[in-house]
Amino acid sequence: MADEGMRPIVVKRIKKVAAGHHGGAWKIAYADFVTAMMAFFLLMWLLGSTAKGDLNGIAEYFATPLKVAMAGGSGSGDSSSVIKGGGTDLTRRNGQVKKGDIDPSSKTYNLEAAKAQVAKAEADRLQSLKSKIESVIEVNPLLKKYKNQMLLDITSEGLRIQIVDEQNRPMFALARAEVQPYTREILNVIGMVLNEVPNKIGLSGHTDSTPYVSDAGYSNWELSADRANASRRELVRGGLSDDKVLRVVGLAAAAHLDRADPFNPVNRRISIIVMNKRTEEAVQRDNASIEVPAQQPQAAAEAALAAAGAPVKN
């Protein structure tokens, strides 16, 4: 019994050893799974929104990619293909550039740059024409004598040539559309020069603000229009092709050259506009006719009567 009382007490301590850290490998696996699912759904969306012809091209490309790449064609780096790339520079947006003939449907054009280039070429041509007319005036003794009555400048409509009156040297007979001899010679020379350019021509007649009304109602409007048309005839007589004239108008005293003095003789003038392409297109668009279908003349007539407020017979 005495031995039992002296028995030592043993205390057992259990030391728990934690498992080693796995390093978060499951996160990488999960990220790969999510990426794969996103790619899968993206592929399904692309396949669902792609035309059947494009699908066949993609299938052919993946079936024999090397053959398509070497032989060329619509599946090899073409700018219109679903699969981009190819060529010497992989960063190019349009992809591969073929050495042979390029399908016109695959070409791209910068419309704004083309328009700017055409406008610049036209402006250079009009400036050259202006310089040529000025040279003709200098070398021609007759025109040089009337140099002060011819004004040349470039406007938004094109090259403007103005032949103006002077106090003691009018272009036309008083209150008439009869061209004076020196004006006829000026217009004949200008007509010959203007026929060398492809641009269309517009003419406008102007008067000063001096009132002019005859018993028959003939006013500055009719007078300016008749003078413009008389100038057109002299240009044609000088060599200008008649089909180059696109517009002949009379503006009376509506657009003075000297706005400070509406009675200044320089306001009586003829303006010749060598039109640029934009002005020519605008005039032709304004003069475009409205076509009425030939199979419906009765309906067109009734519509015209209704618009005029006349009764329409049923």
Rank of each mutant, 00 (worst) to 15 (best):
292 V>R: 11
274 V>K: 10
271 S>D: 15
266 V>H: 07
246 L>S: 12
224 S>D: 11
201 I>V: 15
287 N>R: 12
291 E>K: 12
238 G>F: 05
191 G>C: 05
245 V>G: 08
296 Q>T: 08
232 R>N: 12
216 A>R: 14
209 S>Y: 01
202 G>W: 01
245 V>Q: 08
222 E>P: 07
213 V>H: 04
241 S>L: 10
271 S>G: 06
279 T>S: 14
232 R>V: 01
213 V>Y: 06
238 G>N: 10
276 N>Q: 06
241 S>Q: 15
229 N>P: 03
289 S>L: 08
226 D>M: 07
189 V>F: 04
251 L>H: 12
192 M>Q: 14
301 A>H: 06
247 R>F: 09
255 A>S: 13
215 D>V: 07
208 D>C: 02
256 H>A: 08
224 S>K: 11
220 N>A: 10
252 A>N: 11
282 A>L: 09
299 A>P: 00
287 N>G: 10
240 L>P: 04
250 G>K: 11
302 E>W: 05
271 S>K: 05
286 D>H: 12
288 A>Y: 00
299 A>I: 03
217 G>Q: 10
226 D>P: 11
276 N>S: 05
223 L>S: 06
281 E>T: 06
261 D>W: 00
294 A>L: 06
282 A>H: 10
255 A>V: 13
205 G>C: 08
290 I>Q: 09
288 A>T: 11
228 A>E: 11
269 R>C: 04
250 G>Q: 10
225 A>F: 10
211 P>H: 03
222 E>I: 07
298 Q>E: 11
303 A>Y: 07
261 D>C: 00
268 R>Y: 03
294 A>E: 11
264 N>W: 01
205 G>F: 05
297 P>C: 00
225 A>K: 13
204 S>V: 03
235 L>Y: 09
304 A>H: 08
254 A>C: 01
293 P>L: 01
249 V>L: 13
288 A>V: 02
223 L>T: 02
198 P>E: 06
266 V>R: 14
255 A>P: 00
286 D>Q: 14
194 L>V: 01
263 F>N: 12
231 S>G: 13
268 R>D: 08
267 N>Y: 04
270 I>A: 01
235 L>V: 06
227 R>L: 05
198 P>W: 05
283 V>W: 10
198 P>L: 03
196 E>C: 00
238 G>H: 08
249 V>Y: 11
242 D>R: 15
191 G>L: 03
257 L>E: 12
267 N>Q: 07
266 V>D: 09
289 S>Y: 04
193 V>L: 11
203 L>W: 04
239 G>V: 06
244 K>D: 05
247 R>N: 13
281 E>F: 01
252 A>R: 09
193 V>E: 15
261 D>F: 00
245 V>N: 09
211 P>G: 03
281 E>S: 05
226 D>I: 04
267 N>I: 02
204 S>L: 04
206 H>M: 06
260 A>N: 13
302 E>K: 14
204 S>D: 10
280 E>P: 01
292 V>Y: 11
289 S>V: 08
191 G>W: 04
192 M>S: 13
295 Q>W: 02
295 Q>T: 02
233 R>W: 05
298 Q>H: 01
276 N>T: 04
217 G>E: 08
194 L>W: 06
237 R>L: 13
252 A>Q: 07
281 E>P: 00
